[in-house]
């Protein structure tokens, strides 16, 4: 039996949902693999929701909003764009193929474009194959990664960076200095790297207390780097020493919040 991808689409009420309607009105056929969820604005889409959807086994997630300049709520679509950009980098770390996430602009009069996008995405996913998180036996490693990504996306640091991006680049920081885009992107990359690893460590040490050596082996990461993260996490109150064996401390996750 051929694999039929399961696609979840998040469409904005004012443009893309209407575009999907028009495809139907015009009787344009496209593959029946997509399930549409209506939001008022693509800017509503919290990255956490996308990661939950992947964790739930979706083969593909497509987000559709109004073309830039057309957003019913002025610039919600541009906020969505920033979130998806961050998400793609985050998803890439989990081992899940980032091509499974797509952002497209579809206007209310682009019924044909909507159908083409669904056709294209469906065929792309068919070739890519089922999500490692779908079916009865999800890949545990990737699932752990996606759950860590979800926790990362829910965390303060990345959210505040994404939220303040526009203001920092266009209006400037509290000193009125505009942050150059490249500098911002670098900060974002570093933050995604660091926070993702920290959340991976957190989830691992939630299952059982682990040493730096063990963490470094499981994460395939230099022990020095792991230790640096542990130090930060101790300061944050995320982990504490559970016990010491010889000269090796074992860390366990603490309940946060």
């Amino acid at each position: 039996m051929t694999f039929e991808p399961r696609i979840v689409g998040f469409l904005c009420n004012w443009c893309s949902y209407a575009g999907a309607d028009l495809a139907g009105v015009s009787r344009i056929s496209y593959p029946p693999n997509i399930r549409i969820i209506r939001l008022m604005c693509s800017g509503r889409l919290d990255p956490v929701i996308v990661l939950e959807t992947f964790a739930g086994g979706a083969d593909g997630v497509i987000v559709m909003g109004c073309h830039p300049g057309d957003c019913h709520y002025v610039e919600g679509n541009l906020q969505a764009e920033r979130k998806i950009r961050m998400l793609k980098k985050l998803v890439a770390k989990t081992g899940l193929e980032p091509e499974r996430l797509r952002l497209e602009w579809v206007s209310a009069s682009e019924g044909g474009r909507f159908a083409e996008l669904v056709k294209d995405f469906t065929s792309q996913l068919t070739k890519l194959g089922p999500s490692p998180l779908g079916g009865e036996k999800p890949d545990t490693k990737i699932l752990a990664g996606v759950l860590a990504a979800r926790a990362t996306a829910a965390d303060f640091r990345l959210r505040v960076l994404v939220g303040k991006e526009k203001g920092l680049i266009e209006d400037g920081n509290v000193y009125g200095e505009k942050v150059p885009e490249e500098e911002f992107d670098k900060t974002m990359e570093e933050s995604i790297d660091a926070e993702y690893l920290r959340n991976r460590i957190y989830l691992m040490t939630q299952d059982e207390p682990l040493s730096v050596k063990e963490l470094s082996k499981r994460l395939d990461l230099d022990p020095k780097a792991v230790l640096r993260h542990i130090v930060v996490m101790r300061r944050r109150g995320w982990v504490a020493i559970d016990r010491v064996e010889g000269t090796t401390p074992f860390y366990t996750a603490l309940k946060v919040g």
Partner: peptide, 9 residues
């Protein structure tokens, strides 16, 4: 360059 029908409908 707004889509005319989108803003009119």
């Amino acid at each position: 360059m707004d889509c005319s029908m989108c803003i009119l409908a």
